[in-house]
Design a protein around this nucleic acid. Sequence first.
DNA 1: ACCTATCGTCAGGTAGAGTC
DNA 2: GACTCTACCTGACGATAGGT
Length: 356
Amino acid sequence: MAKRKSALDEAAQRAFGAENRARLLHRWFADRPAVEPGRAWEEVYRLLLWVDATTGLAHCYESDKAQPGRPWYARSLAFHVWLSDRLGVEPTELVDELDWMFRQAVRDLAAQQREGLSEKARAQREPYDGRELPEPGADPELAEIIEEELGDWLREPPPEEVWARVVTRVQAHLSQENKRRNLTGEGFEDVVVALVNRLGAGRDVRARTQVRLGDLDGFYPTREGDKAKLIDLVVENGRTGARALVTAKWSVRSDREEQFRSDFEAYTRLQSDNRPFGHVLVTNEFDPARLVRACESRAQNAPLFTDVVHVQPHGVLAAYGEASGAVSHKTQRKVQEYVEAGRLTSLDDWIAGLLD
DNA sequence: ACCTATCGTCAGGTAGAGTC
DNA sequence: GACTCTACCTGACGATAGGT
């Protein structure tokens, strides 16, 4: 048997890395019919959107504010129901429709950890054989909680190593959520690119991620010693020559807003020709104030973004209570107006526009 | 007085390049 | 090949402004 690891193992070495993400996406699209125009947003949600474990609802806002009784719980419920209806499943079944990419990546990660780590750990503890040392994963308080709740139902107290295994598994389960952030970010870029390329196939429209500005036609090459400026993604139309410099952010925060501005300044400063270029924000942010700011931001006496694109603006409006006529807050109404005016466009409309 | 919306900051995480 | 360092990602949090 050859020593060489299979391609699958190689990629899964970095479960969240570019290679494994590409592998996963390839598999996802291989099993499915061609993406239908108008339904790109569904792919994004099936691949990347997740259900918040504390509420059981599709995640659309900060978890502390989406707890039962708080304002975003009502909005999360509305979004969850809207999405279930659109995907044609019961609200209790939605969880199985979403989050494919993360669930796959975590499985790869778990497989890789099971293999490598326990062997090494044994070697590390070996010099202390014969001495009492704390077992990893010992968390007496967590064990106590479980025992208090379940004790009466147990015929006998479980042995130590069972406690350790339970506690370790609970801890691993909880820490998993923290890993999601990484995949959501770069995975979002990958998914948008994959969708543009699939829908743009045969129309000479091409999208790429992580493009160095200096390598782009119409911009000065990066000077020696300068750090290359990376663009989240670039879309080029070979027929019309149109190009769009895109920043893809699953969510928005004020520090990222600062970056939008400074990145755009760099783009204009380093431009070597006069051909206009699109400057686009693609996001899944649900916060009305952040969305309105993206629509209204200006730079050099023009809108900062030529296009502000949301994965699914109608999902946002559903969350605000569009269906029940409850879009009452001023900022929310403004979002509604921007959607109606086409200033805040949907991913699908934006992609369709790229293909003209 | 109370409640919500807003928004800056921070922590936890990974990948990937560089170095030895 | 292992380790270190840097860049970058996002969600949670919580202080405070603002509305009723």
